[in-house]
Design a protein around this nucleic acid. Structure first.
Lengths: 137, 137
DNA sequence: CGGGATCCGTTTCGATACTG
DNA sequence: CAGTATCGAAACGGATCCCG
């Protein structure tokens, strides 16, 4: 288990369950990684990188290691040249998919709402510009 | 809207919806704050602090400001002496409760699973100690 | 191909002290 | 009461170079 995760679980084992979820799923790329592995069943390191839009190898490695340490992802190393490493979901990882989908769904609705808000504010600002122009003209 | 949230929404508006959820709900104390506000309807700054177990005022302020900037929480200031500030959920905040509950639920199941795992490993280690003792004896 | 080592800038957390 | 100001420590994401 990841040290950070263990610290949270041991530390304030009560009333902070949501924070555990955030700690486990909250890294950069992690929900996307889990979704891709759920969709494709099994992916190699390079395939994952391409599908994610080329994060640094260093970063991708770290995220995958953390997911592995937290038990959501299984890593299979084929000892051969050139090397080949496959990743897939563990049972724990598959069990997290409903939550990942809930995160995706709410995040999408939230982003849509906020984009409308941004557009509204922009339109308002332009309207004010028009008024200014009218006054100046 | 919080700058960080806007950056994510504008930046890679696609395929990262789950990351938006994490950005909005992912701070320390944030899910707990939302749950408490949902449960109590309205809470003052100090009440929230006590219910959360006394995080630093600085920290609590920051989390509440971010939730407010992201539109999940409404802040009402009563201009009086001594000051009085009330926090409650916005519609957006109430809409996030199913997700917060999903985070709590999965986090709880995950923590229970990992606690069993820790106990199992500890028992195994003690068993090995017993074996060592037997050999040494 | 799939990383590890090293370094860096930013963000975040948290403690202490002070204020209208 | 409900913060703000300041500071230090740590975590995180990311870039660059190197390796078997």
């Amino acid at each position: 288990m990841r040290e950070k995760t263990e610290r949270i679980i041991r530390g304030w084992g009560d009333a902070c369950d949501a924070e555990i979820s955030v700690a486990v799923l909250g890294g950069a790329w992690k929900p996307s990684i889990l979704s891709l592995l759920d969709e494709h069943e099994v992916l190699r390191f390079g395939e994952l990188g391409r599908l994610l839009g080329e994060p640094t190898a260093r970063v991708l490695t770290r995220q995958l290691r953390e997911l592995e340490d937290d038990g959501l992802v299984v890593r299979m190393v084929y000892r051969q040249v050139p090397p080949k490493v496959e990743y897939r979901l563990s049972d724990l990882g598959r069990g997290s998919m409903p939550l990942v989908e809930a995160l995706t769904s709410w995040g999408g609705r939230y982003a849509a709402h906020q984009r409308r808000e941004l557009a509204r504010l922009t339109a308002e600002a332009e309207h004010l510009d028009d008024l200014d122009a009218a006054v100046v003209g």
